[in-house]
């Protein structure tokens, strides 16, 4: 049975934003700290560090999760996507990111990466949500600047545009 000693630094092989990467972490290191301090992916923001604020939300194997409630060693062999994965190599914004800009979906921007990761997965699962459903999904994130109106508008507008593009 694989047992990792508390002092032992582990080599973690995983896929980060599409690239195969390796990093070192001891068992107690949180994924949020690992991404920021070891891998240099600072788009993963750290807010409350106990799962409430949602700032550190990332996708693991395509499902959004709190990186502050995940251990770095648990992503061995898995795929992690942070906000850096969205824009692509040419730094072009995705339609969702552009909508956040258009609809004033952010001010200070601290909560934004987590919300973008959540909304990306959510719109794949529920491509045509109601405003109430979007607000329900957003209950897992705290934003102190916008009052949420701009965020809701940005997500609704993205969903609508994608529906129109399809038809």
């Amino acid at each position: 049975m694989p047992k990792l000693s508390q002092e032992a630094v582990q080599k973690i092989n995983f896929t980060l934003n599409g690239d195969a990467e390796t990093g070192l972490a001891e068992p107690r290191m949180l994924l949020s700290d690992f991404l920021r301090n070891v891998m240099g992916v600072t788009g993963c923001h750290v807010g409350c560090e106990h799962g409430v604020c949602g700032a550190c939300t990332v996708q693991i194997d395509g499902k959004v999760q709190r990186s502050c409630l995940t251990l770095a060693v648990q992503v061995e062999g898995r795929r992690v996507d942070t906000v850096e994965s969205l824009a692509g190599r040419e730094n072009e914004l995705t339609d969702l990111q552009q909508a956040f800009k258009t609809h004033h979906g952010l001010q200070c921007g601290y909560c934004t990466p987590g919300i973008l990761m959540s909304a990306s997965e959510y719109l794949q699962q529920n491509p045509n949500p109601t405003e109430e459903e979007v607000r329900d999904m957003l209950s897992g994130h705290l934003c102190r600047c916008t009052g949420y109106a701009g965020i809701v508008n940005a997500i609704m507008a993205t969903a609508k545009q994608r529906q129109e593009n399809k038809s």
Binding site: M1, P2, K3, L4, S5, Q6, E7, E26, P27, R28, M29, L30, D33, E49, L71, V73
Partner: peptide, 21 residues
């Protein structure tokens, strides 16, 4: 904050988890 240090057992089977417990 961060957790204190701990050993981590990755249980591959129920039996392993029970043995570790």
């Amino acid at each position: 904050m961060k957790p204190r240090k701990f050993d981590l057992v990755r249980a591959e089977t129920t039996a392993e988890a029970l043995a570790a417990l």
